[in-house]
């Protein structure tokens, strides 16, 4: 895992050194790594675009202190696909496969910060899918949530909602 990340970092720092035309936008991650992207990519990120608009396009270097250099490439990759109209079920499945829980969350937060509706929508679906059709116990374990109901409360709730508890998937082995 650690190796994978560092190799990714290398490839990123290479792309970072690419000389670029003045039209590109520089996104600076929280750990001070600069990513040059096409203006069309910036358009996908509402937060970035509004920053550019506010300064009449004079400023093209945008600091993104909340986003790490580890997450930003994923965001850019998704935006590139989105512009190219190549967001398919297959691409999304592959995209998610690469990510562990922590990364899903970081990207989700990044998508929220950058205000990228499509990515936000997609990732919330990804997380929702990890809740759907799983038993209550599994969901608690998976998301690390403490059961704070008293046994009476829980019994009542389960009684109240019994009608809907059918067809839950058998618990998988915990992922990751």
């Amino acid at each position: 895992m650690a190796e994978e990340v560092s190799s990714q970092m290398n490839s990123l720092s290479i792309s970072e050194t690419n000389p670029s035309s003045s039209a590109t936008i520089s996104l600076v991650s929280g750990d001070d790594i600069v990513f040059k992207v096409e203006p069309t990519i910036a358009k996908e990120m509402e937060t970035v675009q509004s920053f550019i608009d506010e300064t009449d396009g004079k400023i093209t270097t945008i600091p993104l202190p909340n986003i790490s250099s580890h997450d930003l490439p994923y965001v850019i990759e998704y935006c590139e696909k989105s512009i190219a109209g190549k967001i398919t079920k297959e691409f999304e499945a592959e995209f998610v496969k690469k990510l562990n829980n922590e990364e899903v969350k970081e990207l989700f937060l990044a998508a929220n910060y950058l205000n990228i509706k499509k990515l936000l929508d997609f990732l919330s679906q990804v997380i929702a899918d990890r809740i759907a059709n799983k038993s209550v116990e599994y969901v608690r374990r998976y998301f690390g949530i403490e059961n704070d109901f008293t046994p009476e409360e829980e019994a009542k709730l389960r009684e109240e909602l019994a009608w809907t508890f059918t067809g839950v998937d058998p618990d998988d082995e915990d992922e990751n």
Partner: peptide, 17 residues
């Protein structure tokens, strides 16, 4: 995230905490 869940899934998630 919760908005994305169907009725039955929401009902299930309500028993988590």
């Amino acid at each position: 995230i919760f908005r994305k869940l169907y009725m039955k899934e929401k009902s299930n998630a309500m028993c988590v905490s």
